[in-house]
Design a protein around this nucleic acid. Structure first.
Length: 263
DNA sequence: ATGACACAGAAACTGTGA
């Protein structure tokens, strides 16, 4: 089975490219982030015509997560236990559309879009750390089953996971706190599989649209796949689909794909 | 060889992303 994660940066703007890649890559399950729409706005038809079922969680034009599967899709959850809410001062906090769980092909798949953090003094940064902490606590209770925590973690865990640690637009991605919160999933029994299979430096999953970042390979590795022990043992390979960043109409992120054998 | 921000809606601008 092939399981992928991809921050698509609007599924409506990217629909053709996403479905085309799904079929070309022979992917069975795709966890998407930043679909940027409500369920009723999601372009279901091309996915269903290609043989995929859908689970969709979106509240408005921001965030939004989905899972497409052609190997079954069951037991959908639209948040994890104790997932934190966020709201601007004076607004009611909302549990945003940043997590979606479903069982596909025998794997409990969580499509995750970790908050950006915005700035070190911004409440969004505390929200990001709290999101990672509560997710890890929930994940610790799932570790006995084949479980995949995949998505955009918005953390560059190693200095070599970012083209420049001085990039002010990514200051919340490289702090000791954010990196510790990322690595803590290992304490819950999980293995990050892209690192295990692709230890090379400067192998990024995101390149900003601005300033020729992609042709200059000035990016970040921020999309990851944490696996519980049973899933980690069954995974035989990982790829980063760098070619999907090329050309007009690309997302600023590319897919990360797990090749999974018998569980 | 990949190419000089993009997406959505509150819309001819702002919020958001990273």
């Amino acid at each position: 089975m092939r399981l992928a994660t991809w921050n698509v940066n609007s599924v409506r703007a990217r629909c053709d490219r996403v479905v085309d890649w799904l079929q070309r890559s022979d992917t069975d399950v795709l966890a998407m982030q930043e679909i940027k729409c409500k369920p009723e706005q999601f372009p279901r038809e091309p996915f269903e015509a290609a043989g995929y079922e859908l689970a969709i969680h979106g509240l408005n034009q921001w965030n939004g997560v989905a899972i497409a599967s052609r190997v079954g899709l069951a037991d959908v959850e639209t948040s994890f236990p104790a997932q934190p809410a966020f709201g601007k001062p004076g607004q009611d906090p909302v549990v945003e559309a940043r997590a979606l769980g479903a069982t596909a092909g025998g794997v409990r798949v969580w499509s995750l879009y970790v908050p950006n953090g915005r700035g070190l003094a911004d409440p969004h940064y505390a929200y990001k750390l709290e999101f990672l902490r509560t997710l890890r606590e929930a994940a610790a209770t799932w570790a006995d089953a084949p479980t995949a925590l995949v998505g955009d973690f918005n953390v560059a865990p190693l200095p070599t996971d970012i083209w420049s640690e001085e990039d002010s637009e990514a200051e919340t991605h490289v702090t000791p706190e954010a990196r510790a919160a990322f690595h803590a999933f290992a304490d819950a029994g999980y293995t990050e599989l892209s690192r295990q299979f692709i230890p090379d430096e400067r192998r990024y999953t995101f390149w900003d649209y601005k300033q020729l970042r992609f042709p200059k390979n000035e990016g970040m590795r921020i999309d990851f796949a944490y696996a519980s022990p049973a899933l980690a043992a069954a995974t035989t390979g990982v790829t980063i689909e760098r070619d999907e960043r090329k050309g007009k109409g690309a997302s600023d992120h590319v897919p990360v794909v797990l090749e999974i054998g018998a569980l």
